[in-house]
Design a protein around this nucleic acid. Structure first.
Length: 813
RNA sequence: GGGCGAGUGGUGAAAUUGGUAUACACGCUAGCCUUAGGAGCUAGUGCCGCAAGGCGUGAGGGUUCGAGUCCCUCCUCGCCCACCA
């Protein structure tokens, strides 16, 4: 009987559907929560990249369940979002229809690869029963001061006349129509993620995440320790406050720069400079974010005609505006110290501004290698960029700071600034509050009602969800399509009953995905987003797997939500995802990123029908380490398919008694495979299973119980085939109700091992020995090897290094 | 400019963490079988060399009995961030 993947996979998928494996009730003690990033249900269906991460976690989940753990492993859909809405603009087909159809397709595809999701817990963010709680969470944040409304510059597409999210701006242009994106000042809704900047930073020390993701989040949060310094303005009743990380260089400040958008510019600018300053501000405002950052080669600026007083030495220094200073960072103003900052140096040279040296570089010093204890001759050369020195050193020309090292000088000047009420130590963060409102249709409506007299009022909880209306025109106008819906827009104020209007913006879809893993814990609950006990039973998530592209968006937002919900008493922990792993991109066969335009997209359906679900699962895991980028090679699928066929054929050579010669290898395989699965190292686990299969094939026989163990080890990877073989072995119950095999430590000890013999460090032969053989025995064996003795003849043995079981090295002269 | 990571056969990749480099698989070569095969089986396959032997993990140094692995100096590639004061 040949291995017929199609009938086997159909048969078992049907059985799993009819009697899904119990995932345990919510009061179980021995629980794990395995999570994969839920997909956006795109019209093009499941991608091989989805298969990669879902298969990996499915395998670990199946093993843990066989080891007696209750594992929550849910799936859902991140169903709101732009593509469906854009499709509606083009075709008039309602996003709800497009999305529902795509979800159908995804579900069918996911089931076709035999993933053991708990389908009872499936969620969709576009479902009113889901977004009702997204809205509820918005109101929770609103009532607790974590959601607020403010004016802010946002990305504006001139052609689509609509706001774009940062991620929808590609190289300064609209991703949809490729036209220019400019900055526009609009009033928007924000979440106060900045309140959590420090905790989001320090919390990372407690979680097992890839260093790369942590680094990206740290960089995004952008903590910077320094000081503020207040400069009074000559002939004006005004103070310019600047932020600097080098307060120790205050004596070297020779001018002050404000961002063009800085609020004080209007007040300070001298009449004779007004025309120039205005022209510069207009020009800067027109520049896109792209131009302002990428055309950084040339710095430009304009003198305002005003002067500031350096508080530490009473020097009168000019105030400039320049767009190399960002209004959004620090105080939007800097003190320029050209002698010790490259940007200021460049600017000062261009505009002939004075450069004053206040830090002396340290002298050259010899560095001792602490490991060796002797000088290795390496030296640290101080970095001198022509006349600009940016490293630490010793203060000079700095009055009270003279002769102090940079660190000491910082401390001293900060104290002085504080004492004199002129500023002092200050830490800033680069992260900005999260802009969550979108002038879009296909998202969760923001549950706020605007009243002339009462201001923004939360929609009463018993009126949630605020359901998306259907009487809308999707054509972009610059306003949310919801404005056009009379049934939606015109309401009464919940506080005073006066006529009022409903907020017409919807929420960023990242709000939906910031809490979805909580909904899985209790997906049918209509009293709360989830029951606290159920959350605490499963959460935090033990293992989270998904793409690295979400490093500073979803993964940061979800952490913020978790911290906020913790503080408000809704969850019992701060960090939501204890362990995170990123799957590497699967590239096209040509080594390029898969894309429709390149025509190198591999459709998993075709692989499933031709080779089988078990083969595609196994193949994607066998490709290489989960976290690496790997090119797809359809020919490689043949290899794992052959392996499955070999396993299938082993049925023909089953014997009743265990085959002695396979016993050690079997137990070593149990050990290796179990450990590898735990670490998500499926490629080496599969290789080990192949070796065992090859060994059994060569031996021409395998014991019935030995075969059963092999099938069990294979079960998480190739669930359909393993179920079938398990049944053929005479079992009535699913293989996944069986107990995961354990190895016998006594059986993994080799009685004989092959060991290399080196002469002067070069391998010259090998000997077969007991692993605990004595040095004399090892030497005797080595002398019996003529290739070894050839190199020993006529030489004196100086030294013998013998590491039992590892190596014998004979040093001769 | 900053951060993270990687360079091993023709290809995807292994290497018990300092102990016989290239496991496993693809591909390729030869042979067998077959009407045929994008099927199966057997053997071979790092490089140079007829051989003995030599050389081999991006390059060059170092430590060590022994280095893909540790240390130093470089080179190349990938990803992310970037006028952040």
């Amino acid at each position: 009987m040949p291995y017929d993947h199609q009938s086997i996979e159909k048969k078992w998928q049907k059985k799993w559907e009819e009697s899904p494996e119990s995932q345990g009730d919510d009061s179980d003690q021995d629980t794990l929560y395995h999570l994969v990033m839920f997909p956006y249900p795109s019209g093009s269906g499941l991608h091989v990249g989805h298969v990669e991460s879902y298969s990996a976690v499915d395998m670990l989940t199946r093993m843990e369940r066989m080891r007696g753990k209750k594992v929550l492993f849910p799936m859902g859909y991140d169903a709101f979002g732009l593509p469906a809405e854009n499709y509606a603009i083009k075709t008039g087909v309602h996003p709800a229809q497009t999305t529902a159809k795509a979800i159908e397709t995804f579900r069918t595809q996911l089931k076709s690869i035999g993933l053991s999701f708990d389908w009872d817990r499936e969620v969709s963010t576009a479902d009113p029963d889901y977004y009702r709680w997204t809205q509820w969470l918005f109101l929770l944040f609103f009532k607790n001061g974590l959601a607020y409304r403010a004016k802010s510059p946002v990305n504006w597409c001139t052609s689509c006349t609509t706001v774009l999210a940062n991620e929808q701006v590609v190289s300064g242009a609209c991703e949809r129509c490729d036209s220019e994106v400019i900055q526009k000042e609009l009033e928007q809704w924000f979440f106060k993620i900045t309140d959590y900047a420090e905790r989001l930073l320090t919390g990372m020390d407690t979680i097992d995440w890839p260093e790369k993701i942590k680094a990206m989040q740290r960089n995004w949060i952008g903590k910077s320790v320094g000081a503020t310094v207040d400069f009074s303005v000559v002939d004006h009743d005004a103070t310019v406050s600047v932020f600097t990380t080098r307060p120790d260089t205050l004596f070297g400040a020779t001018y002050v720069v404000l961002a063009p958008e800085h609020a004080l510019v209007d007040q300070l600018v001298a009449d004779e400079s007004r025309t120039d300053v205005e022209a510069y501000r207009v020009a800067a405002g027109k520049k896109s974010a792209l131009e302002r950052t990428e055309l950084q080669k040339v710095k430009t600026g304009v003198f305002t005609g005003a002067y500031a007083i350096n508080p530490v030495n009473d020097e009168k220094i000019p105030i400039w505006i320049a767009d190399y200073v960002m209004v959004t960072y620090g105080t939007g103003a800097i003190m320029a110290v050209p002698a010790h900052d490259e940007r200021d140096f460049e600017f000062a040279k261009k505009y002939k501004l004075p450069i004053k040296k206040v830090v002396e570089p340290p002298v050259l010093q010899e560095v001792m290698n602490p490991d060796v204890g002797i000088s290795n001759g390496a030296q640290t050369q101080v970095k001198i960029i022509t006349d600009c020195f940016t490293s630490d050193g010793t203060a000079v020309n700095s009055g009270l700071l003279d002769c102090l090292k940079t660190n000491e000088a910082k401390e001293k000047i900060n104290g002085w600034l504080t004492e004199n009420g002129l500023g002092g130590a200050k830490t800033t963060y680069r992260i900005r509050d999260w802009l969550v409102s979108r002038q879009r249709y296909w998202g969760a409506p923001i549950p706020i009602i605007w009243c002339e007299s009462c201001g923004p009022q939360p929609v009463p909880e018993n009126q949630l969800p605020v359901v998306l209306p259907n009487d809308v025109d999707f054509k972009p106008t610059g306003e949310s399509p919801l404005v056009g819906s009379k049934t939606f827009h015109d309401v009464t104020c919940p506080a005073c009953s006066a006529p009022a209007r409903r907020e017409s913006d919807t929420m960023d879809t990242f709000v939906d995905s910031s809490w979805y893993y909580l909904r899985y814990c209790d997906p049918k609950n209509d009293q709360a987003f989830a029951d606290r006990e159920k959350i605490d039973n499963w959460c935090p998530v033990d293992l989270y797997v998904g793409g690295a592209e979400h490093a500073v968006m979803h993964l940061l937002y979800a952490r913020f939500f978790s911290y906020a919900l913790h503080d408000l008493g809704y969850v019992g922990y701060e960090e939501p995802f204890v362990k995170l792993r990123n799957q590497g991109l699967i590239l096209g066969p040509d080594g390029d990123k898969m894309s429709k335009s390149k025509g190198n997209v591999v459709n998993p359906d075709e692989i499933v029908s031709q080779y089988g679900a078990d083969s595609i699962r196994l193949y994607e895991m066998f490709l290489g380490p989960l976290e690496d980028e790997k090119p797809w090679d359809t020919k490689g699928v043949v290899g794992v398919r052959r392996f499955l066929e070999k396993v299938w054929k082993l049925q023909d050579i089953i014997v009743l008694e265990p085959v002695e010669g396979l016993e050690t290898q079997l137990h070593k395989t149990i050990k290796k495979v179990t450990g590898d699965y735990e670490e998500l190292r499926f490629n080496t686990a599969i290789a080990k299973l192949m070796e065992l299969t090859n060994a059994a094939t060569s031996a021409g026989k395998i014991g019935r119980d030995q075969y059963a163990v092999l099938v069990q080890l294979l079960a998480p990877l190739a669930p359909h085939l393993s179920e079938e073989l398990w049944e053929l072995l005479g079992h009535k119950e699913s293989i996944f109700t069986s107990t995961w095999p354990t190895f016998d430590p006594k059986k993994i000890v080799d009685t004989q091992i092959e060991m290399g013999v080196q002469v002067n460090g070069k391998v010259r032969g090998s000997v077969v020995l007991a692993p605990d053989a004595s040095e004399d025995e090892a030497m005797a064996a080595a002398h019996a090897d003529e290739n070894v003795t050839k190199y020993l003849d006529g030489k004196d043995v100086m030294k013998i290094i013998y590491v039992p079981g590892r190596i014998l090295n004979i040093v001769v002269k």
